[in-house]
Write a protein that binds this DNA or RNA. Structure first.
Lengths: 248, 248
DNA sequence: GTCTATATGGAGATAGAC
DNA sequence: GTCTATCTCCATATAGAC
C-alpha cells in the first residue's frame, strides 16, 4: 500500500505546519490587531452565509477592507482562517457554560436542580448570545449550525471544541436521574443538539411554514419552550425504561 | 434605484430559462436515460459529502463515467443538476408519507391514533430509507440534513418540497390535541425537524462523544426513541399551557 | 504590516466534430 | 448522445517592493 497523503475535500494535499511559511499568528502592534480581527469578522459573516467553499479570500479581504495577501500573512491560508474563526469564540463560550452549570448546582436545594433547569443552564448561554450578542455571535452560531450537519466537519469540529462541556452537562443530568441509561442520555443530547443547531441557523423556514405566525429570529420563543420540551422527552425515556424493567 | 438582477451566492448573474440553450430534460433512448441517472447518482453522493460548492462538474462526470459536457446537455448547468437531485426522490417520499398518515387514521379506534403514532408515521418513511434504502437514499438524506441548516437553501428548498406533507402532519396532531396552540405545534415541529436532520447527517459525532457506546449509523436506536421523546415534549407544552390558562 | 504583481491551476460553460 | 477543444474567468498563494 502506498503511503497515504492527507488531502482535503477537494483532493488537494493538506499542508503540514512544516510546509507552510511561518505565519504571524499574533500581530505585534495595534494596527495589525485591528486588521486581524477585521478579517476574522468578515470571514465569520461570509462563511455563515454560504459555507467555506463558496466564499473566496478576495471577498473576505474586501469586506474587511484589507488586502487578500494578509490572510496568508496572518493565518497561513483560507483553511486556517476558518479554524481561527471557529476557535475564537469557543473558549469564552465554554468557560461561561461551565460556570453556569456549577452555579446552578451550588445554589440548588437538597434534590439538586431540575432536569429542565440543567438543560436551561446548558442552552441559555448559546440562545442568549444568538439573540442578543450582536451580529458576530449570530453569524458564529449560524456557522456552527451549518457545519454540525456536515460529514466533513460535523464530528471533527464539534467534538474538538465542545465535547468537554457536553460531557460535563451529561454528568449533571446523570446525577439528577441516575437510573437513566447512558444510551438514553446520549441520544437525548443528540435530539437536543439537532434542535439547537437548527435554531441557530435561523433560515426562515418556520416563518413560511407557519405563514408568519412563528419566526426563526424569535429566539425568545425557543428559549421558552426548548428546555421543558427536551426535559419531558428525557424523563419519558427514563420512565419507559423503568416500566420495561419492572414488567420483565 | 437600478433594476435588480438576480444573482446567486457567488454574485454571478442567475441565468433565466430564456438565456439558456435548450436542454434535453428527458432522454429519448435507453442509453441516454442511463447516463442521466448516472450523473444524478454521482452528484447526489458528492454533494452529500462536501456540499454544492466544493464539488466540480468534472468530478461528478468522472464518477458517473460520463463526459462533463453532458451535465450542460441534460440539465442546463451545475445548479440545475443540484435541483434535479433534490427533486428526484421528493415526489416518491411525499406520496408515501401521505399514505402512511391516512392509513394510520383510517385504522385507528374512536380516539384516533396516539401522538406518538402520528409522529412515527411522519418519520418512519424517512428513517427506514436512510437505514435500509441503499446508499442513494442515505446520501439524499445526508444532503437534506446539510441544506436544511443553511441560510441559502434551508427555507427555499425545504418549504418547496416538504411543506405540504408537514402541514398535513400538523393537522393530524391538531385533530388529536385540539387545545394545543398553533405556536406550540409549529415549534414542536421545529425541534423534531432539527433532531431528524441531524440524524440524517450521520456525522459520527455521537460515536466519539459516547466513546463508541452509540453510533450515528444506528438508525434503529433513533427510531426506537424519537417518536416517544418528541410526543412527550409536545404533550408537555400542551399541558403547561393548559395549567397556565387555568391559574390565570 | 501592507500592497502590487504574478505564478499556477482549475472552475463552468459551449461550439461543433463525430 | 457523446466527446474534444477551447473560451473566459477566477481561485489560492507567494515573492518582493514599499
Amino acid at each position: 500500500m502506498p503511503p497515504q497523503i492527507a488531502v482535503d475535500a477537494r483532493g488537494k494535499p493538506a499542508k503540514t505546519a512544516a510546509m507552510r511559511t511561518k505565519t504571524r499568528t499574533r500581530p505585534q502592534n495595534r494596527r495589525g490587531e485591528k486588521t486581524r480581527s477585521a478579517l476574522l469578522d468578515a470571514a465569520e459573516t461570509l462563511f455563515a452565509e454560504t459555507g467555506f467553499y463558496a466564499v473566496t479570500v478576495r471577498q473576505i479581504a474586501q469586506k474587511a477592507g484589507a488586502d487578500p495577501a494578509l490572510v496568508t500573512y496572518y493565518f497561513g491560508g483560507k483553511r486556517e482562517l476558518f479554524d481561527a474563526v471557529l476557535l475564537r469564540r469557543a473558549t469564552e463560550l465554554n468557560a461561561i457554560r461551565q460556570q453556569e452549570l456549577e452555579r446552578l448546582e451550588a445554589n440548588a436545594g437538597p434534590d439538586g436542580p431540575s432536569v429542565e433547569e440543567i438543560i436551561n443552564a446548558f442552552t441559555h448561554p448559546l440562545l442568549d448570545r444568538t439573540a442578543n450578542g450582536g451580529p458576530g455571535w449570530k453569524s458564529y452560531f449560524a456557522l456552527i449550525g451549518q457545519i454540525t450537519n456536515t460529514p466533513e466537519w460535523g464530528a471533527a469540529v464539534m467534538n474538538k471544541y465542545f465535547d468537554p462541556i457536553v460531557i460535563r452537562f451529561l454528568e449533571s443530568l446523570k446525577r439528577k436521574i441516575p437510573d437513566c441509561s447512558e444510551e438514553d442520555l446520549f441520544w437525548s443530547y443528540h435530539f437536543l443538539s439537532g434542535a439547537l443547531v437548527l435554531t441557530f441557523a435561523q433560515t426562515g423556514r418556520i416563518d413560511v411554514l407557519s405563514e408568519g405566525l412563528c419566526k426563526s429570529s424569535d429566539i425568545a420563543s425557543v428559549h421558552e419552550r426548548m428546555p421543558g420540551f427536551i426535559a419531558a422527552g428525557i424523563l419519558h425515556l427514563q420512565e419507559r425504561a423503568r416500566n420495561r424493567k419492572a414488567t420483565s
